[in-house]
């Protein structure tokens, strides 16, 4: 049985399979409307989430399956002090597959060690968020037509931003991918990612603290929110949150075919004035999140579209 804890739990071939299945689902959703009939997805969300939880639930419903779960630690036995290991042992007998979000890093891995059903990490603190990465990959592949030969700008909170870390690890497996990291000094990408991932794999990257000059060279601009919940100190959050705001003026420096992605929710780092720009694809990206989760659920449950 396979669990998805880190984006690297999936091989390039696995990812290709999931993205191809996602594209088939986009084309013919009716073909997949009953493949999970009689199956249940447990959504164990120990911290609030809108998109991720609802997209998992929508994905399972689109496949004809059912959903059960909780949406905050307060409404689960965690409030009584139950361990992740005990919770998943019990849930394993109630559901066929589980998606877990937890504020503590590594909690889904603990669950996977004790689970008898597939566990999908739906985000663990500032650590990994593999289904967001799959969503990002599907968006790039479907709208850009390729996953190789790309110059990717990563902007905002690159220190705590788990979506950025996961995306880097996933994208370096494709040919000729370069990164331009745009962030304040305090929120730069962690040294270990540079040393143990980018440098080790000889991936070209540059770090800058101004957005406009690098815009013309980007195929993609991946914006991230400076997340309040990742800071221990409120003053640091207030000082840095407005550092990098994408607006129509900055978009004038971008190529006609550059895409703007964002894992959402945004606060103010993308001005609403560019929402109607065809290059702003973050709402499309959120929609793709449902399709890619449908494909992942099918893969983990070893179902195909013909049953």
């Amino acid at each position: 049985m396979k669990h998805i804890i880190s984006p690297l739990d999936l091989s390039v071939q696995d990812i290709d399979d999931i993205l191809n299945l996602s594209e088939n689902i986009i084309t013919s959703p009716e073909k997949y409307a009953k493949v999970c009939q009689g199956k249940k997805l447990a959504t164990l969300f120990y911290e609030p989430s809108t998109r991720t939880r609802l997209s998992f639930e929508a994905a399972m419903m689109n496949l004809g399956g059912n959903v059960l779960g909780f949406s905050s630690a307060d409404s689960s036995s965690a409030a009584k002090g139950e361990s992740v290991a005990d919770t998943i042992r019990v849930i394993s007998s109630y559901a066929d597959i589980c998606a877990m979000r937890h504020p503590k890093e590594g909690a889904p891995l603990v669950a996977a060690q004790y689970s008898s059903i597939p566990v999908i990490n739906a985000g663990d603190g500032g650590h990994n968020h593999p289904t967001q990465t799959l969503t990002d990959l599907l968006t790039i592949k479907n709208l850009k037509g390729r996953l190789d030969n790309l110059t990717i700008g990563l902007c905002g909170d690159l220190k705590f931003g788990r979506t950025v870390h996961s995306l880097i690890r996933a994208m370096i497996r494709y040919e000729n991918v370069k990164f331009v990291m745009i962030s304040p000094e305090e929120l730069r990408i962690p040294d270990y990612l540079k040393r143990e991932v980018l440098d080790r794999e000889n991936i070209p990257y540059e770090e800058v603290n101004v957005l406009e000059p690098v815009m013309p060279k980007l195929d993609l601009l991946y914006m991230t929110r400076v997340q309040r919940e990742r800071f221990f100190n409120e003053e640091d959050y207030i000082r840095l949150k407005d550092s990098f705001i994408l607006d129509a003026k900055k978009m004038k420096h971008a190529r006609e075919d550059m895409l703007v992605l964002h894992p959402l929710p945004r606060v103010n780092e993308i001005s609403t004035e560019i929402d109607d720009d065809p290059r702003a694809v973050y709402f499309k990206q959120a929609e793709y999140g449902v399709y890619v989760r449908m494909a992942l659920i099918m893969k983990l449950l070893e179902l195909d579209g013909d049953c």
Binding site: S83, V84, A85, H102, P103, K104, E105, G106, A107, L109, V110, D124, G125, G126, H127
Partner: peptide, 10 residues
């Protein structure tokens, strides 16, 4: 932020 910080049995 690690799960080991709150689950002593791990």
């Amino acid at each position: 932020r690690c799960i080991t910080s709150i689950e002593q049995e791990l």
